[in-house]
Every structure is written in C-alpha cells, then in structure tokens.
Write a protein that binds this DNA or RNA. Sequence first.
RNA 1: CGGGGCGUAGCGCAGCCUGGUAGCGCGUUCGGUUCGGGACCGAAAGGUCGGAGGUUCAAAUCCUCUCGCCCCGACCA
Length: 499
Amino acid sequence: MAKSSDAKGLTPRAQDYPQWYQDVIREADLAEPAKVVKGCMVIKPYGYAIWEKIQRELDARFKDTGHSNAYFPMLVPQSFITKEAEHVEGFAPELAVVTHAGGEKLEEPYVIRPTSETIIGHFFAKWISSYRDLPMLINQWANVVRWELRTRMFLRTTEFLWQEGHTAHANHAEARSEVARMLDVYGDFARDVMAMPVIRGIKTETEKFAGAHESWCIEALMQDGKALQAGTSHDLGQNFGKAFDVKFQREDGELDYGWQTSWGVSTRLVGGLVMTHSDDAGLVLPPRLAPIHAIIVPIYKNDEQRARVMEAAERIKRTMQDIDFSDPRCRYRDFLTVEIDDRDMRPGAKFYHWERRGVPMRIELGPRDLDKGQICVKMRTGGDGKKEFLPEAEFLGSVRQRIDDYQQMLLDAAEQRMADRTVTLDTWEEFMAAFGNDDSTFAWCHWDGTKETEAAIKAATKVTVRCIPLPGQGPAPEPGLCIKSGRPSTQRVLMAKAY
RNA sequence: CGGGGCGUAGCGCAGCCUGGUAGCGCGUUCGGUUCGGGACCGAAAGGUCGGAGGUUCAAAUCCUCUCGCCCCGACCA
C-alpha cells in the first residue's frame, strides 16, 4: 500500500522513486488499483482522457499509413495458442483460461487473448488466397489479459488496453519495410507527441516476442535511469502463416505462406509519460496529450468582483478555445481546451490542485489584472518558474507559441536528460560502477552476441540488452571487445535495467 | 511463486508488543467570515478495524487460514 505521502505533497523522487510514481498517479487522479480484481487498475476519467488523446493521434497515423481498424474476439480457442511452438511457450504461463460458460463446462476452453496473432492468423487464412489480397493491413484497439506475477500501475497490469496492428504481405522484404515503417510511426509519435525521446532498435533473441522472427522496439529512458520498452514492431516471418495456413498464390503462380507483422503500444505509454516529464510537484503533461491546456483561476473578494472576473474569464476562455494548435503533420484539427476553476476554494489550493494534474498553463485573473488589462500567466514547469504579466491582447497572441514552446521545452529537457544519462562503457569495472546498487543508465557497450553472456550480465547486474540499435540510433558501428566476455563484437548495443 | 512490508473513516496514519469494545491530521456536509500560493470559526456526518475461523468472560490487539496491495527477485507491453 502507498504510505509515505500526505495530502500536502508527494514523496520526492530522490527519496523513493517507485513511491513517487504511485503518488503522482494518485494525486493527478489518473488511476487507482482495482484491488477487487487482482493486478487490475481503474483508469479514471483524467487518465483515460490522456489515453484517448494517444489513441486519436496514433489512430490517425495508422489510417495515414493505410491501415483499417477491425475487431476480433477476446476469447481465443485454446488450441489456437498452441499452434505456434514458440508462441505457446512464451505465453502459456500468463494465460487466463475460461473453462465454464452458460453454467456448463466447455468442451474446449477459451483463453482470454494475451495478444491476437493466433485468432487473427485464423481469419487471415480465410481472407487471403491471392497476392491480390495483399497486403492486408489491419489494426485493432483492444484489451488483453496477461497473468503477470507482478504488476505496476500502467506499466504492467493484468488487463491492459492497447492497439495491435496485424499485417500480411506477399514477401519478406515488404513485411520488413512495414515493420520499419510502423516502428517509425511509434518513434515519431513518442518524440513529437509525447515529447519522449526513444532509441530505435532490434531485440535480442532472448528479448524478442514469442513467435516472432525479429522484434523491433523503441526504448525510452525513465528518470531513474531505467529503460521502458515503449513500443514493439514484429517481423513474424512466416511463423504464423505456416501455423495457421495463411497460404496465397503468388504472382508467379506458386503457393506461398503469408509474411506477417504485428506491432503494438499500450496504456504503458501513460506510465512512460509520467516517468519522463513529471516532477516532485506532480504530473507534467506535454500539451499534445494534455486533456486541459490552460486553467483559469478567478480571484475575487466579493460578488461584484466575482461578476467582473468571471465575465472576463469566460471571454478569455472563449478566445483561447478557438486557438487552433493542430500539428501540421496531422490530419485532424486540434483546439485548446481551457477551463475555469470557479470552485469555492482559496486560489492557492487551486494552484496546487492543477499543478498536480500537470495542466501546462495557468492563468490567474483578478481585479488588479482587469484594471490593468493584463493577464497573469504561469507555465507548469520550465523557464524561471515566475508568473508573467502581460497585456491581454499580447498574451492571447502569444498563446499558440507558448504552447508550442512548452511542448518543445519538455522534449528538449527529456533529450538532455537522455544525453546526460547515456554513457559509453568499455570495461566491466566501469559497468559495475554504472549499474551498482539500484542505479541504471543507458549504456552503449560491446556484446559478443551470445545468450550466455546476456544471461551472465543479467545475473550479475539485472542489466539486459535493451536493443541492438538501428542505423543512426547509437554510436557508429565499430569493432570492439565484449564488456563481459572479452570476445569480439561488431557494434555497441544499448544496455540498461528495464521496467 | 520465493523474501520483506502493509491492510483501522474518502486519503494519510496512530492504537496491537503489555486483550477491556476505536482515535488523530487532512478531506466531506451545514452556517458564517474569507479569497493574488495549500484559510479560519462554529456545528455535524462518517469505521461490523481486508475476510473467515479459533482462543478468551472479552479480540483492531493473540493464533490459524485466506484475499489484496506495495517493495525486491524470477516472468513480461
């Protein structure tokens, strides 16, 4: 149970990072543990609003890249799961199984989908018979269940929300370009929308998706130095094609199995968002994902003042809500969301309230401002943290830029932190120093490419190979010696402790 | 699943060792005064002490079991 915090503050990150993380979520009213359902959480309206923004952005990007949404059953015949050998092995331990329904024992149990490769494979087999049916580009927004031994809010819950893209292609090259393309969609989204820089790379054999030929990923650096796998894009090869008999006739007349991909991001992104930007005062949100962009706090001492202030507040709200801050890279229009907090509380209490919720911009509006025709504005974080006073017209003209600057500032800060906390290590002594105690960081190290060494490093330090960087994502490839075994290596890989 | 911690009012906690029938802070409700960084006064509501057994004249307190949460580990988005 959460303990050390009180109503007036959060546990400082330096004192207890995991506790701080929970405090932020609770104080920002993002979610709460369901308790009555093991390992599950309730995503509360404010937290869900963030997820909806993530969905909207990503969905637009999926549509832009030619994908269509569809929906497949949540219950999957148990026999489906067992068709792909590696897939069963990977998922068997975390399956929830439905054995009874309608008051009777089922002849064949259903598993609650941990992911949908199998059931979608089944339908792809029905839908695909010719190269003319390809590529098949499908996405599904869904919930999945994985019976994890240990859960953490947003980062790993028994049930979680995600999207899973599933595509089938006529040849491996095309499938691979899809894998790369969607990884870029994720990477760009993380950077441009979440203001969360990521490293794009390829998973090692041990870390790849159960059943995949190869797994690509984006890895983000959290404030405690740990890595968060924020998205994956899998080259499934023909593994599921063969398991589910997804056969099609090629242009040359020969029969072949479909080359498939799958890719996904989940509500885990919300956890990543929290651990990328938030501070000891609570949640910090990038404007592109903030449910509320600006909060107006009216200040008054009597009814006469209240009437004046509220009238002005409404006027400013209307003007601001018409400000279009759409991302030019996106199709849909986006306008600022502005709210007035007219609750019967002291202004100071309201300030803290909205700071904990990460609202990017605060406007204080009192009689003094009205008399001077000025606006008092303060951003949630960044700059010198001071309130600014400027003429109303000038303020309104600057809002769009302020919002954009704030988004950029969060990205800059996150990139700076990543740069500061990324090291290049060459010796095991350096390695142990960097990862001693509970410390973590992003470390570029040589690795001999073997599972044995990977396991030895993990056993000694809990550090894993997060990914083998894609071109341009890490130090330029150069030969070297494995940090652990001393054997030859052709390039450095990203190592860190992971969530 | 192993090790550790913890479940007492909406939230955060004390009480438990040394059984005697539940308390503090914040919040909530009502009234009033307040209002530019977490207001104050007055009144009030709110808990079968996670659940089930057991010991006892008597259990929040002792014992057993069980459910859940948090941290560490193994597994994973």
